[in-house]
């Protein structure tokens, strides 16, 4: 037996097996996506951290409220303030304060209490 029919038969077999593997790949991707969505849904079921956005930290500089308002109006972003990459004079002053606060947070995360909080060995 030879010729086209046999070749096409073998090619069909190859395609069949390839299709099976393609389905397996697709299934793995779909399962992975379901896992992600399940994680997100679980997150959404948790109560929000109800922080007070209008609060002004006790140690914040006087320019803090103005900066917060500019952020609310879209004139500034926290990322710009945090990085110090802004020409806004209020933003630059608050940046000095956020820098210090970030340092406090880093120090805390390195402390035994902070490491315990994030589940790292002390």
């Amino acid at each position: 037996m030879s010729g086209m029919s046999e070749i096409l038969g073998i090619m069909g077999e190859i395609e069949h097996r390839l299709r099976g593997r393609r389905d397996a790949m697709q299934q793995a991707a779909v399962e992975w996506r379901h896992q992600l969505h399940a994680r997100i849904e679980a997150y959404d079921r948790e109560p929000d951290d109800d922080g007070d956005d209008d609060a002004v930290p006790a140690d914040a500089p006087p320019e803090y409220r103005a900066v917060r308002d500019k952020i609310a109006r879209g004139e500034l972003t926290w990322a710009e303030v945090l990085s110090g990459q802004t020409d806004d004079p209020d933003g630059r002053k608050v940046h000095v304060w956020t820098d210090a606060r970030m340092q406090q947070m880093r120090d805390y995360l390195r402390s035994p209490e902070g490491r315990r909080m994030v589940g790292e060995p002390e």
């Binding site: 951290d49 922080g51 007070d52 930290p57 926290w78 956020t98 406090q104 805390y108 995360l109 909080m117």
Partner: peptide, 21 residues
């Protein structure tokens, strides 16, 4: 971003740091 904003607006930022991490 939401928690980051809380970290910068709360006097007691420690309670949000764990969530952020």
């Amino acid at each position: 971003r939401r928690v980051l904003a809380l970290l910068l607006s709360a006097t007691d930022w420690r309670k949000y740091l764990g969530t952020f991490f």
